[in-house]
């Protein structure tokens, strides 16, 4: 009986705990905040990025002295508005700068990286 209970608890952990901590392999960036999207939504390979670069690079949170205190778990949209009033980076600028600058740097160094041209990220369904 005791053995069965132990097995049930073990099964529960095996079944539910890893998915709870696992990361989505791909995230579709189809934020409603943008309204109707002009270009196809970007399918962001989150897992591929999380294995290559530091999480804090994207999930950042800068203090007044530009120190990155880290904002793990936060999404871009939590801080970057679509139309910010205070002159800060808009959500679209945040996406474009974050993705393109990194990709451009990697490609310039001759390393493989994601897209730098519009249609390499905003891919139309065939």
């Amino acid at each position: 009986m005791k053995c069965t209970k132990l097995l049930a608890v073990l099964m529960f952990f095996i079944a539910f705990v890893p998915p709870a901590f696992s990361q989505e392999p791909e995230i579709i960036l189809n934020h409603e905040e943008f309204g109707k999207h002009q270009r196809p939504a970007v399918i962001f390979p989150h897992e591929a990025h999380s294995t290559k670069i530091d999480c804090l690079r994207c999930h950042h949170d800068f203090d007044a002295y530009s120190n990155n205190r880290g904002g793990e778990g936060q999404q871009c949209v939590n801080c970057h508005d679509v139309h910010p009033d205070d002159g800060s980076l808009s959500l679209q600028e945040a996406f474009h700068l974050q993705c393109k600058e990194c990709h451009e740097t990697f490609r310039f160094q001759g390393k493989s990286a994601g897209g730098t041209m519009c249609g390499e990220c905003h891919i139309r369904k065939k």
């Binding site: 041209m117 519009c118 249609g119 390499e120 891919i123 139309r124």
Partner: peptide, 13 residues
């Protein structure tokens, strides 16, 4: 063609 992503995208752009 580039906007509609017809053909080799990078070359066309």
């Amino acid at each position: 063609l580039a906007y509609h992503q017809i053909g080799p995208y990078r070359l066309i752009l």
